[in-house]
Design a binder for these strands. Structure first.
Length: 671
DNA sequence: TGTGTCCGAGACGAA
DNA sequence: CTCGGACACA
């Protein structure tokens, strides 16, 4: 026990030792949050709590894995493997698979991922004859998700629609839901909603969980949304042994329904809760912490607190004005090249953090130009690649014959002469009769409405997939995938579509990569199933990342959102301009505070050196337009922006808030 | 029906 | 500029 607590500061220790009753741990960036959670878990175990009684909820699967690894070292493999540790989503899925019959769900329900959602929404809009320029599918998707997370039903949404746009989206919502249910799939929001329903409608299940999980811990509590809160609350409301850990200043998922008021109001939700504030930052120099504090204190609604650095002074933070994004990228690439050449940094020490998904473009070009190894985190996922989605759609259809999105997608893959017209006929007929797309397809072929050998052949192919299903049942996934590839002659399809040798190989590699995943999964999982395999791929972003993730020495290029929780010796925070950070949309949506938190997250990723830059102009839609330094930079320097700062015509932004500094203090103290 | 070209809209984040 | 959709053609 002694040993466990050794090395913890007073606050950390208090958080670990407060095991009974509700506890709020406010853990600023870099204050040893993960350490506290793992030690607290180990502490509970050492005190005799059974590992089965502990529920540990993390924000990502990666975090869950790492947590478990750490615990293995502290309490042994056995115990670490017995505790329940995962994201809300994976926890809920497990629950739903176990209790599927209570909710009238098939056991092997499929998962509708983001891109399937988009397909489904576009389909719904088309059925409703709503042109996409009237309702942007993307906007519809996010609104629908918002409805779902606030437990608004389609009918309610229709009733309460305030204008035409909302009405259109609400109808789209209804169609979308019908589509999901018909396809027997759940989207990400559904996991939570169905789990919530399970707990409300089946008291015995709720009691069973409450009985089992006597100690519950939630990490990244600031990112918890309504349904997640409901689920958690249902489990702990009896014993109230709940420990939530988070930082309201790092709440950056409001757009995804995360509800920052939950962490702000924790003490109201759980009267008598203990509160521990971890305020000592072990990650960054004083300059960096100081900058972070100065920015974040401009947010009105937050737990009052500020960070102190345990590291002492370091170097000052340059704020650099660049001509445009190309200049910014080449400047930074040059600097990185020099730093590494002279030995002050390794590539792996360095991260370039961006706000938006298109910013990396310029950097990729320059980094490549300088032969600097880099890895781009986020961006187009492996699973957005056409060939990968093709195969996956087939696999989903094999696992879940009702999956309409997948069925419609593969109907003409490889191209077999089943075009838009045919599909439209099928969809219309299917909607009218309320039958599934494939039965409808078969019926239309049989009664001659759709003719042709192509259609007949496809019916046959579709039926032979049932055979594949049988293999899959036996758990031989590699065999299933291989057979599938043969059956649909996918290799020749790839050869046909990509005449260029290089792309062809690239594409085929994507296909082979799925085989690798399957092989891996099959080897690691005790009871491999196709459904489980697809679930693992869809749910766990980090599983898909190339294995080179860890140790190879390269510069990290990523968005601020994916940087949360990480740290780097040297960080370049780029494109810090009005309209980018804060993002243009935040003004109309009233989310500038969240943008500020994003800035705060970015600044606090840096351990020793932080360099901030903004551009005087930037190419937008192929045209160069002037930009202005972000208000956050003024806040950081405690200056007021000049009156003409954003004035329309004042082309090149007025004063760079400040330039590099000359007075450099003893760089010694930071070890 | 598949393929190619033109056109207009766009623009953040991800389990 | 860069994508996806619409449209025209073979």
């Amino acid at each position: 026990m002694k040993k466990l607590l050794g090395g913890l500061n007073e606050d950390q220790r208090r958080a670990v030792e407060t095991t009974e009753g509700p506890l709020l741990v406010l853990a600023g960036a870099g204050t040893g949050k993960t350490r506290v959670i793992t030690v607290r878990t180990a502490y509970l175990l050492n005190a005799g709590v059974s590992p089965e009684s502990i529920l540990l909820v993390t924000f990502t699967n990666k975090a869950a894995r790492e947590m478990r690894e750490r615990l293995k070292k502290m309490v042994g493999k056995k115990k670490a493997e017995q505790l329940t540790c995962g994201t809300f989503h994976s926890f809920c899925i497990r629950l739903l698979r176990e209790h599927h019959e209570k909710l009238d769900l098939p056991e092997a329900f499929g998962i509708c991922d983001g891109s399937d959602q988009m397909t489904a929404i576009k389909g719904a809009l088309r059925e409703l004859r709503i042109p996409e320029q009237q309702v942007n599918p993307r906007a519809a998707q996010s609104r629908i998700s918002l409805y779902k997370n606030s437990c608004v039903s389609p009918d309610q949404a229709i009733d309460e629609a305030a204008d035409d746009w909302e009405l259109a989206v609400a109808h789209c919502f209804r169609k979308y839901e019908e589509h999901l249910r018909r396809s027997r799939v759940l989207d990400f929001d559904d996991f939570l909603l169905f789990a919530m329903r399970l707990l409300t409608e089946h008291e015995e299940v709720r009691e069973q969980l409450e009985e089992r999980y006597k100690y519950v811990m939630i990490d990244e509590y600031q990112d918890t949304n309504g349904p997640q809160y409901g689920i958690m609350h249902a489990i702990v409301r009896g014993h109230r042994n709940l420990c939530v850990v988070g930082d309201d200043d790092q709440s950056i998922y409001g757009w995804r329904g995360a509800d920052i008021s939950k962490i702000l109001g924790f003490e109201k939700d759980f009267p008598g809760a203990d509160k521990v504030h971890l305020g000592i930052n072990y990650r960054s120099t004083e300059e960096i912490i100081d900058a972070a504090n100065k920015v974040i204190r401009n947010n009105p609604k937050r737990h009052e607190k500020s960070l102190r650095s345990a590291l002492g002074t370091g170097s000052s933070i340059p704020i650099l004005r660049m001509d445009d994004e190309t200049h910014e990228a080449s400047y930074i690439a040059t600097e990185i090249e020099a730093l590494v050449r002279e030995g002050s940094n390794r590539y792996g020490d360095i991260a370039i953090l961006v706000r938006t998904a298109q910013q990396p473009r310029a950097f990729e070009a320059e980094l490549r130009g300088f032969d600097i190894p880099y890895k781009l985190v986020g961006g187009m996922s492996f699973f957005d690649r056409k060939e990968v989605r093709d195969i996956l759609s087939y696999l989903r259809l094999i696992a879940n014959p009702a999956d309409e999105t997948s069925f419609l997608r593969i109907a003409n893959i490889p191209a077999r002469g089943i075009g838009k017209t045919t599909i439209d006929k099928v969809v219309t007929a299917a909607t009218e009769t309320g039958t599934g797309a494939f039965p409808t397809f078969r019926r239309l072929v049989e009664d001659g409405t759709i003719g042709g050998a192509a259609a007949k052949g496809f019916v046959k192919l579709r039926e032979s997939l049932n055979v594949a299903h049988a293999y899959a049942q036996q758990g031989d996934l590699v065999f299933t995938v291989t057979e599938l590839l043969n059956l649909i002659e996918y290799r020749s399809e790839v050869d046909r579509i990509y005449p260029d040798d290089q792309t062809r190989e690239l594409r085929w590699n994507g296909v082979m990569e799925i085989l690798n995943f399957a092989e891996n999964y099959q080897r690691k999982d005790k009871k491999p199933t196709l459904t489980g395999f697809l679930e693992a791929l869809t749910l766990d972003e980090s599983d898909r990342k190339d294995k080179d993730d860890g140790d190879n020495d390269s510069v990290t290029l990523m968005t601020l959102h994916s940087a949360k929780g990480l740290e780097f010796r040297r960080v370049y925070l780029v494109g810090v301009e009005e309209g980018i950070m804060p993002h243009i949309r935040s003004a109309t949506e009233g989310t500038v505070d969240e943008e500020r938190r994003l800035m705060y997250v970015g600044v606090t990723r840096a351990q020793h050196e932080l360099s901030i830059s903004y551009c005087a102009a930037r190419a937008k839609f192929g045209k160069l337009v002037p930009c202005h330094p972000s208000r956050f930079l003024f806040e950081m320097k405690e200056k007021t922006p000049p009156d003409d700062w954003m004035a329309a015509g004042s082309t090149p932004p007025p004063p760079p808030p400040v330039r590099k500094k000359a007075k450099r203090r003893a760089r010694r103290r930071r070890m």
